[in-house]
Design a protein around this nucleic acid. Structure first.
Lengths: 137, 137
DNA sequence: TTTTAGTCCACAGTTTTGGTGGGGTAATTG
DNA sequence: CAATTACCCCACCAAAACTGTGGACTAAAA
């Protein structure tokens, strides 16, 4: 399951996508409109900035804004930043690989199944972008 | 990610699938062969029994065994029992549905994306069975 | 130089995860 | 029937992850 943090991140990103190219948006505005705890949101946005998804401006007229065209930002990238690995086992993760203890990958049926699950999941998450967070008109 | 408990469960089920129709298998044997902590395994097997996946026999010659043909037991069912929901959001879960707070499902893009992820995942997990846990010969 | 608004760090409460200990109960065997 | 075997059940525990909060600091603008 996606953590609350991840859900908050997506809410915030949806809002910033709506406001794309309209200048910086206050954390407090996002917090109020999307009903996300202010201080928690602060941490999340900072993390997204460090991951190069957002940029920010300080002082009056400041706030957060998308660094790139939302149509170019994949859902998979966001999940990896705020939620961690997409794969269901460390030994089938592309970006967070760790071999498993006491498990020969070449002779592990679960391994193969979870590779298929990962690929099916990525097939969706790599084609969806921030644009898809907005409701259809 | 799958919990350690889930990984242990699959290891045990793989072993019991190998031994299908060969009578009950001791917890201690599964624990030793698959290197799963004995007492922890005990809890897991009991849970799988209550979920109607396994059956058991007490006393000498006792142990655990698969209640049904392993080719009929879907991976999705096991994941739901030992790991919980397969969906990444409560509001898109088929078996553990809960509506989300402050989120109109009919106007939530993330909702739609996660339905697609769920379906892609289930497409694999509902077609794979315990048989697929065994390595190819 | 005051105000505004993001940055950074530490901490704290709660829940989940991973695991252990010990006694109880049912089935088998002699 | 009594001893042995092996699952059943409950309680508890430590560590980690999750969900936040508080407060001081810094950069930018007016």
């Amino acid at each position: 399951m996606l953590s609350k943090k991840s859900q908050y991140a997506f809410k915030a990103l949806a809002y910033l996508t709506e406001k794309y190219n309209q200048g910086p948006v206050l954390i407090s505005e996002i917090s109020a409109k999307k009903k996300v705890p202010l201080k928690f949101l602060e941490n999340i946005l900072l993390e997204l900035k460090k991951a190069d998804i957002l940029d920010s401006k300080k002082g009056k007229g400041g706030g957060y804004y998308l660094k790139k065209d939302p149509a170019q930002v994949k859902v998979a990238a966001i999940v990896r930043i705020v939620n961690g690995p997409i794969a269901m086992l460390p030994c089938v993760s592309l970006n967070f690989y760790k071999r498993c203890d006491n498990c020969d990958e070449t002779a592990c049926g679960l391994h193969d199944i979870m590779i298929q699950v990962r690929d099916a999941t990525l097939n969706v998450m790599e084609t969806k972008t921030l644009i898809d967070l907005l409701p259809m008109k």
